[in-house]
Nucleic acid binder design. Structure first.
Lengths: 187, 187
DNA sequence: GTCTATAGGCAGATAGAC
DNA sequence: GTCTATCTGCCTATAGAC
């Protein structure tokens, strides 16, 4: 079974890595295919052998995270919506955020990517679903604000040093849960 | 004294308002001068009567907030750096964030604008200065993470409904201070 | 799998009429 | 203060050689 499979194309992964790096610094709209190709040492036309269009780069880069969050929310629908359940959802979202840190550093602050229907719109819908899952049935205005703040705490890890993330994880989770309902993580 | 002054040019303000609206949705790089002009009912060339270049739009839009934060930090340097002082800084930063909400909704998630030396770089330096002012002298790794989380709470108000901001303000401040040092706002 | 060459379009910006 | 017309350059994307 030495079959290569569809995901071990080294060049393809190099393209995605360089694209992510440039997208993160310059934004999606601010990065040209010529820049990506130059960084890799070949020409812009060669990119079109690996990817059919520019937006397929951002689609491929973000799909793993989008799928992970999608699964997260689907699973949470099975529960009762109690505090322990919401804390678990928050923790799972944080862990997904950490393990996809590089992509989120880009996605979190790129209005250009948010325009894309298969990326920005889907991400928007998922975060909205998450927001609703975290908002208890007895939520007043202040509680809804606290949900937004708790998500803000999670999103803040996009700005942290990746090397510090494993150590920071529990501190962030405690902060998020405390913001959400005034007490440390349950469960 | 019926002198008009330099700031009552209606057309100029309309241009800035439309630019901010489009920048917020599409990003700076994703918005063309043609789009801005079309929305206003005149041509792209007319914009150049009011503004010398595209980037002057983003400079004018963001300068008020940048100046406000700059003042904030300058004032905080006079204090002793105690907890009450840090809470006051957090509150002041939140209030500036709220009163410049529209600009921050844009600036907070636009990598294109962050590239600009007079905007993104300056904003980066200011937030870094704020981060340092909020980090106490006896700060360990966890404390530094909590500073980042507290700022994340403030930044989350960029995603809130503007109409809800006055009511949300105290809830957000309490969340930010609790994240920072485990207790409600001092002072 | 990468290349050269090029099509076709739209960007930011300028000149000068009105 | 706004217009038309135009310049220059870079963009995405394609065609076809190697």
């Amino acid at each position: 079974m030495s079959t290569p499979g569809p995901t071990d194309s080294t060049t393809r992964e190099q393209v995605l890595a360089v694209a992510l790096e440039l997208f993160t610094v310059q934004g999606y709209d601010g990065t040209s295919l010529r820049q990506i190709a130059e960084r890799l040492g070949f020409t812009k036309a060669a990119l079109y052998y690996h990817f059919p269009a520019k937006d397929s780069l951002v689609i491929e880069l973000t799909r793993p995270w989008l799928d992970a969050v999608s699964n997260l929310i689907a699973l949470s629908h099975a529960g009762d919506g109690g505090v322990a359940e919401r804390d678990r959802l928050l923790a799972d979202y944080l862990d997904v955020f950490i393990s996809h840190h590089a992509v989120l550093r880009f996605l979190n602050q790129d209005a250009g990517a948010h325009k894309h229907p298969d990326v920005g719109k889907r991400a928007q819908a998922l975060v909205e679903a998450l927001r609703q899952a975290l908002t208890g049935p007895d939520a007043d205005a202040a509680a809804r604000v606290r949900v937004a703040c708790a998500l803000g705490v999670i999103h803040a890890v996009a700005g942290l040093d990746p090397a510090a993330l494993p150590e920071a994880r529990d501190t962030v989770l405690e902060a998020a849960c405390t913001v959400l309902h005034g007490s440390p993580p349950a469960g």
